[in-house]
């Protein structure tokens, strides 16, 4: 029983780095996509937050504080997604307006 408990505990502990890395990778990818959509021009606030949170998440991961790293990475992901969304909306907004004008 004790052995089983130990194995479960080890597995749970072992998941920390894996899950954190996965969330960090997701945030990294989302930030790259946002940057590709010119988030630095259209959603600088969100893009900067995502960048800083991602860097901090990596730092915390480096110190093996996986829970904090994961929370920060999740926030970074959220900000990066928001940056991407905002940038895309703002890039397409003038085109949409033009379309509306031409329909009139």
């Amino acid at each position: 029983m004790a052995l089983r408990g130990t194995i479960v505990a080890c597995l749970l502990l072992g998941c920390g780095p894996v899950t954190t890395t996965s969330v960090i990778d997701d945030a990294d990818g989302a930030l790259l996509r946002a940057r590709a959509a010119n988030a630095d021009g259209y959603a600088l606030y969100e893009a900067t937050l995502a960048d800083l949170y991602l860097a901090k998440a990596r730092e915390e991961q480096g110190h093996a504080r996986y829970a904090d790293a994961q929370a920060l990475a999740a926030d970074a992901l959220r900000f990066a997604q928001a940056a991407g969304r905002k940038a895309s909306e703002r890039r397409t907004a003038p085109a949409a307006d033009d379309a509306a004008v031409s329909k009139r």
């Binding site: 600088l44 606030y45 969100e46 900067t48 937050l49 800083l52 901090k56």
Partner: peptide
């Protein structure tokens, strides 16, 4: 001042 605000908020949380 989006960059400054983001830097301030993020570092405050950190």
């Amino acid at each position: 001042a989006p960059r400054e605000l983001a830097t301030a908020e993020a570092n405050l949380r950190f």
